[in-house]
Each structure stands twice: as C-alpha cells, then as structure tokens.
C-alpha cells in the first residue's frame, strides 16, 4: 500500500495543473462568446477544445482525450471556420 501513498502525493500536486487548466477553460469560453469576429470565435473555441482535452488526459481518460483532440479541436473548428467563410464574418453580439 506504499505505492498508493506515493500516487496520492502525485494526485495532490496535480490539482494546481487542474486549477490552471480550469481557469483558462472558463476564460476561453467567455472570450469565444464575447468576441465579435466570428473567425476568431471559432479559433478560440478550438483552443477551448484543446484545453479540455489536456484536462481529460490529466484525469486519466486518454481515450476521450484523443477523440476530443481529433473531433472537437479538429473537425468542429473546421466546420465552424468553413461556415463562417461561407456566410458572414461579423456578429452583432
């Protein structure tokens, strides 16, 4: 049971990394919704997806993390950017 104690130490240090990621997560979510240029909103949403992917890697969900990296940060961002390029780039709010 010594190994468990050691890992407990690692986990208790991990919360700082966790906190930093969560703060950035909320910040990017708010910025993505507040910015008026839709192309930058799409890019910042990609950053948001990548941050949440890092968070899930830290939580031990690697399968979810790489799916999110491929699908969330990759495909979703491409969908959003292509829609913005085909429609208008400006947003009223």
């Amino acid at each position: 049971m010594e190994a468990q104690g050691q890992e407990g130490e690692i986990v208790s240090q991990f919360w700082i990394f966790d906190l930093i990621l969560l703060v950035f997560l909320v910040t990017t979510a708010v910025i993505a919704l507040r910015v008026r240029d839709l192309l930058s909103a799409a890019m910042i949403f990609g950053v948001y997806s990548f941050l949440i992917c890092l968070l899930w890697t830290g939580m031990g969900a690697v399968d979810v993390a790489f799916t999110e990296a491929a699908v969330g940060a990759g495909v979703s961002a491409v969908f959003l950017i292509s829609t913005v390029l085909r429609t208008s780039r400006k947003s009223s709010d």
């Binding site: 468990q4 104690g5 890992e7 407990g8 690692i10 986990v11 979510a29 993505a32 919704l33 839709l38 909103a41 799409a42 949403f45 948001y48 997806s49 949440i52 968070l55 899930w56 939580m59 031990g60 969900a61 979810v64 999110e68 969330g72 979703s76 959003l80 829609t83 913005v84 429609t87 947003s91 009223s92 709010d93």
Partner: peptide, 29 residues
C-alpha cells in the same frame, strides 16, 4: 442573436456535461 454564437454555446454546454461525467470516473491515486 448570432446563430454561430448560439452553436458555440451549445458545444460549450455539451463539453460541460462531458466534464461532469468524466469527473465521476476519477479516483484518488
């Protein structure tokens, strides 16, 4: 008002729920 902004909001809503479920599976050590 903007439809793309609404969809970004919907995606954030979804990832928040995913975050909740993944947090349920985490154990100490």
């Amino acid at each position: 008002n903007n439809l793309v902004k609404k969809l970004i909001g919907m995606s954030i809503f979804q990832t928040a729920i995913l975050l909740f479920y993944i947090s349920l599976g985490v154990k100490e050590g």
